[in-house]
Structure formats: structure tokens, C-alpha cells
Design a protein around this nucleic acid. Structure first.
Lengths: 268, 268
DNA sequence: GTCGATCGAG
DNA sequence: CTCGATCGAC
């Protein structure tokens, strides 16, 4: 059976529920992983999903900040949320999707943004980000390597040179500092993950999933970053069929600053 | 020449500029007096008015609160704003509209709401409202009596029994307490004004211009109040041709809690 | 209920 | 620039 899975930092799912509906109608992913839903589970707009046949929903939300949700038109088993860094933040959820011979485990992450100042000594938000990466690394080491698994989300780090519009100008900007990009590479390698987006798009080619709200003419300036990611374990590597970055979404009415990314897996 | 003049507490002109445009397109008043524009003059959405041929605009605005604007498709001479109660509030503006033999003076007022507790000793907002009425009375006494003049606005008082859904239940509710209703009558009589709305609608008939946001089913409950008024001097009394309360406006998308009131004057 | 201001966060 | 929370005002 094939599987298509999308990840999207929606920056308030309630405010943008119509955009999400349009996206599901037009792109029909099997699974949608949202980040920054910005509401507790009780206020999640379930109906818009169920109306469209997305009846399997797992929400890890909190009031006002962060929050992730995994939504699927294929049945899944909720696996649970891990609370990283003992902060009470809703930044992770996981589900297991039956897929012929065994399940595919799907991790949905929202890594802390890290504030402005890239110094953990003076910026506790940056320290939190680095601690989160450390904990991701140890928790994921060996955990899914020998299974069929997918890790998606807003990882808030653009790891490679051409994941940002200017490597040089962003080296001291949070999301592209060496301690973060190297940290994220360690997480990826420790878990044995393959970077699905870069599997299809050469590392020499610019690839973005986020454009700041502050630049009025985002399309012309095109000062983007690749903050959103889809990783798969080697057991799924041979099934990777394609990647789509829905760049158009940045130009929709009242958009999120992130766009959806979709990965398509061939049948086993 | 005929003249039609509308008054509308818009509760943020920027948020509801599309509603205002629709109203102008559909009802085509010569003059529109807005209250509670809630922005300084610099942020006033002039373009939407000019695009529609309303090229004469006088704004007395302030940041976040209150603010009035008089908008006209007929030329006028700005007369100025009076600052009542030395509070720095933007609650009045006036213009003079050439009308054959002499001008028609148009006063646009936003009287303070007065808070919840109808006791000036313990509620300074109520004291301010009463002081505002006092100052209106002395300032207007004899001032326009012998001219062609119109006074419109959100006066935040429902003066007569049938200006509220329940006279008995509102006697101790701010906007319908005796000290306010009597005070407003004194203002009206001291200036020699005629109540144009009650000129057409008998005092025994319910007449409202405002329905609270808090009542979810405003139309069915119909617990309204007549807070918005159009007064004219005797020199214009014989020209009063009709009054329209645009009640529908309360049911528009994201409405103001007040609806527009339009007065039509016949040619001299 | 609905607004704008202010704030922290992105 | 845009979001939600909080607040005071209506």
C-alpha cells in the first residue's frame, strides 16, 4: 500500500482551518502532521477533518503555544506523546499506521525555535533548544533504526548551506548556527534517518519551507529557510517515491509562514 | 437641494471598512457621521471613501478609543472639534455644508458610555458622562437655534420609555437612568432641537438602534435600545422627509452593535 | 461578545 | 508581520 504524509506548521489551526481544509481537498495526503496548533485538545477543530474523511486524529495540544496533531484518513494506533525537557510543552506525538507487514511509526515534532541570541549562557530559549536536540538524540538512538518509521515536523533548523538563502549571512542567526546544524545532523545520524527531501533535491539546490512574515515581498526577496523536514528509516528508503513542497501555500490568503511538505511512499 | 445624512457607531472603522463601503453603495447617503472609529487620523481608511466619491472627510481620531469622522460626497467647510470636559477625548466634530441660502451645520457627537454603576460618586465614568451632558447643554444653548443645523451621533442615552425594550428593567441601567434621560432632554430643549426619529415614529412605538453583542440571539430577544440620534433645528423641521433605521445591519457579517440611522431632508 | 492596546513569542 | 493571552472598555 502506498502512503503519502504531509507536515505543516500551521501557526494556529483554528485561525487557518479553512486553509487546511482546502489543502486536504486539493492534495489528499493520507496523513497530515500539524505543528503550532496553538490550542488545547478541547478546542481542536475535529469536525473539519472528520467531514473530509480524516477520522483518525491524535492531538497533543496546550493553551496558546506549540501543540501538534496527527490526522489521518487511514486508521492508526495512538502511540503517545513524549514530554521533552520536562517543560510541559506539547511538542511531540506519535502514531503507528498498519502497513501490510507491520506498522509504520510516525513521529511528529515541533522543536523549540530558540529565541534570538544564539548563546545558551545568556538565552535560556536557546539552551532549551540545544537540550531538546540532545534529548531527541539519546531517545532516538537505535530506537527506530530497524523499523519502518517516519519523523516529520518543524525542526526549526536549516541544516545545510542551501537550506538558507545565504549561508554566510545566517551563520550567526538562530536556526542555522553550527551548534544547531551539527546537532541536528547528530540526531539524524544517531537515529539512522534519511533526509527524504534531500533524497530528491540535490544539496546544491536551494530548498525552503519557511519565509518570514516580516518580509513584505516574500516571493520576490525569497529569503527562505528549510525548517520543516521529513525523515525516514532505511527500511522505507527504497519506497520513497517523491517529495512536494507546496510553495504556493505561502501566497494563500492569511497564510502560515511555513508551507506544507508532502512525501509519497510507494507500495511495499 | 435635498440632503440625506447617516449616523453610525462603527466600533472600529478599520475592521469594518468593507461593511461601511457596502452601506454607502447600497444607501448612498450624502453625509455619513461615524463614531467609535478607534484610530488616530493618520490611520483612517480614506481611500475606501474617496473611491466611492466621498471626497470630503473630517476626522477627529485618537489611538484605540472613541473618535468621530464626518464623510461627505457634498463639499463642506470643516468647522472644528470641541474638546469636552478637558479630557483629550475625540468625541465631537462639526462641518458646514452649503445648502442654497446659507449652510447647514452638522455636529457629530460621541457621548461617553458611562460605565456600569450609575452613581457619579463612585463611578468616575458616570460622572464624566453627566459632566459631558452639562457642557453640551451650556455650549449648545442658543447656539444653533436660529440656524439650519443637525446634531447626530451615539448619545449613549435612550431617552424615552419605548427607546428601550423594558423601561422598568432598565431604569437603573446606565443609558436609561432618569438623571441621564432628563439630562439629554435638557440638552435637546436648551438647543431647540427636534428629535427627527420620533418625528416619524410615535413615542409609543419601540425603536432601537443598538443591540448588545452579549445576547447571542439579538434578533429573537430584541432587547435593544435607541442610543443613536438625529436632531434638527426648527429651521429644518419642515424639510424632514423621512427616517430609516437600517436594522438589517445588525445581522451583517461581523457587525457593529449599532446600526446606521439615516435622515432625509427635502429640498428647501 | 467584541474591540484595541500591550505583551511575549515566532 | 502575525499569533494568542491578558486587560479594560463598551
Amino acid at each position: 500500500m502506498t502512503l503519502s504524509i504531509a507536515t505543516w506548521n500551521i501557526n494556529s489551526v483554528r485561525l487557518r482551518i479553512d486553509l487546511v481544509g482546502d489543502f486536504l481537498d486539493s492534495h489528499q495526503p493520507d496523513v497530515l502532521c500539524l505543528q503550532e496548533i496553538k490550542c488545547p485538545e478541547a478546542n481542536f477543530p475535529y469536525r473539519a477533518f472528520r467531514e473530509r474523511g480524516y477520522e483518525h486524529i491524535l492531538v497533543n495540544g496546550q493553551k496558546g503555544y506549540h501543540g501538534v496533531a496527527t490526522i489521518s484518513r487511514r486508521p492508526f494506533t495512538p502511540v503517545g506523546h513524549r514530554e521533552f525537557c520536562r517543560k510541559g510543552d506539547a511538542r511531540h506525538t506519535s502514531v503507528a499506521i498498519p502497513d501490510g507487514n507491520g506498522d509504520i511509526l510516525v513521529h511528529n515534532f515541533y522543536v523549540p525555535a530558540g529565541g534570538d541570541e544564539p548563546d545558551p549562557e545568556i538565552n535560556p530559549k536557546f539552551a532549551h533548544k540545544l537540550a531538546f536536540l540532545d534529548e531527541m538524540k539519546s531517545w532516538l538512538t537505535g530506537r527506530e533504526t530497524d523499523r519502518k518509521a517516519i519523523l516529520v515536523g518543524d525542526l526549526n533548523i536549516a541544516p545545510y548551506e542551501h537550506d538558507v538563502w545565504s549561508h554566510r549571512q545566517l551563520l550567526r542567526i538562530v536556526s542555522h548556527t553550527p551548534v544547531e546544524t551539527e546537532g541536528l545532523e547528530e540526531v539524524r545520524q544517531a537515529g539512522g534517518w534519511l533526509d527524504a527531501m534531500r533524497h530528491f533535491v540535490p544539496k546544491e539546490e536551494k530548498l525552503y519551507t519557511w519565509w518570514s512574515y516580516r518580509a513584505p515581498d516574500w516571493e520576490k526577496a525569497n529569503k527562505g529557510r528549510r525548517l520543516d523536514h521529513i525523515w525516514v528509516t532505511p527500511h522505507l528508503g527504497h519506497r520513497l517515491a517523491g517529495i512536494e513542497v507546496v510553495r504556493d501555500a505561502r501566497g494563500w490568503q492569511r497564510p502560515s509562514d511555513h508551507v506544507p511538505v508532502i512525501a509519497r511512499l510507494a507500495a511495499a
